[in-house]
C-alpha cells in the first residue's frame, strides 16, 4: 500500500497562518495521516487543545474516512453549521486532502501538515519513497530499484563519490541507491545492465502539471 507521508508544520507557522482567523474548524483523516500519527483522532484532539489554549474558538472537529475522496465534500456538508461558524478550516491531512476540501467548500483552508512524499510501507512504521512518478521509468535496467528516487542526486549511471559504506553523503541513515542496485544486479547476474551507459534523462515524461483523461470509448 502506498501512503501520503506528512509532517506537522512548526507551531509558529500554524500560528502565523491562523493569524486573524479566530474561529477554527479542524479536519483530520482516517487513512494515511492516522497511520503516520500526524492527523488522526488523537492528533486532531491535541490540536483542538492547543488552539483553545492559544485563545482560538474551535467550532468543531471531524476525522473524515478518506479526505482525498470526493465524498469528503458530502460528509462535510452534513456538519455544515459547525463549519459555517468557522473563519477557516485547519486541515490535518496531506495536500491531496486539503485540495479536495478546498475545491468543495467555500472556506479558507489552512494546512497543518507538510506533505513530504508518497511512501511505500517497507516495515512496521517505516516508509520509504520509492517512486517520483517521473514518467520515464528505467527500473527495468536497475534491478527494480529506482535511482531517480532512491539516489539523492537522481543519478542514473552509478554512484557519486559521496557514498561510503553503502550510505548516502547527506545522511548515514539513508542507503546509497547505487550500492543497493549493484548488490541486486550482482545477485541476479545482471551487472551488465549497470555497465550500460544511460543517456541523459528525458524530463518530458509528463510536463508538469500532470493531467490524464480516459480516452473516449
Amino acid at each position: 500500500m502506498i501512503r501520503s507521508i506528512t509532517q506537522l508544520k512548526p507551531a509558529e507557522e500554524i500560528e502565523r497562518l491562523l493569524n486573524g482567523l479566530d474561529r477554527v474548524f479542524i479536519v483530520g483523516c482516517g487513512t494515511c495521516v492516522t497511520l503516520t500519527r500526524t492527523g488522526g483522532a488523537p492528533e486532531v484532539a491535541a490540536m483542538k487543545t492547543q488552539l483553545s489554549e492559544a485563545g482560538k474558538v474551535v467550532t468543531g472537529t471531524t476525522v473524515v474516512p478518506v479526505a482525498c475522496d470526493n465524498l469528503t465534500g458530502e460528509i462535510l456538508a452534513g456538519i455544515d453549521s459547525q463549519i459555517r461558524q468557522a473563519d477557516a478550516l485547519l486541515i490535518m491531512t496531506c495536500a491531496y486532502g486539503v485540495q479536495t476540501i478546498a475545491r468543495q467548500i467555500k472556506k479558507t483552508v489552512i494546512p497543518a501538515l507538510n506533505t513530504l512524499f508518497i511512501g511505500k510501507e517497507t516495515g512496521a512504521g517505516h516508509f520509504d519513497e520509492v517512486c517520483k512518478q517521473c514518467g520515464t521509468c528505467i527500473i527495468g535496467e536497475t534491478g527494480g530499484i529506482c535511482p531517480v528516487t532512491a539516489c539523492h542526486k537522481g543519478l542514473v549511471n552509478g554512484p557519486c563519490g559521496g557514498t561510503n559504506n553503502g550510505k548516502c553523503e547527506i545522511d548515514p541513515d539513508k542507503d546509497c541507491a547505487w550500492t543497493a542496485i549493484y548488490n541486486r544486479l550482482k545477485d541476479l547476474g545482471r551487472l551488465d545492465s549497470m555497465r550500460k551507459y544511460q543517456k541523459p534523462r528525458n524530463h518530458l515524461g509528463e510536463p508538469s502539471p500532470g493531467k490524464f483523461r480516459l480516452p473516449a470509448e
Binding site: 542526486k153 543519478l155 552509478g158 557519486c160 551507459y197
Partner: peptide
C-alpha cells in the same frame, strides 16, 4: 567533470539541486 556535492552540505541548503546530467554524461556532452 564532476557530479558535485549535495546542496545540503553547503551554505545554501534550501537551494534547488539540479543534477540534470551526471559526470559521465557531461563528459559525453
Amino acid at each position: 567533470c564532476l557530479t558535485g556535492d549535495s546542496v545540503m552540505l553547503g551554505d545554501h541548503k534550501e537551494a534547488k539541486p539540479v543534477f540534470d546530467l551526471d559526470s559521465s554524461q557531461l563528459v559525453a556532452a
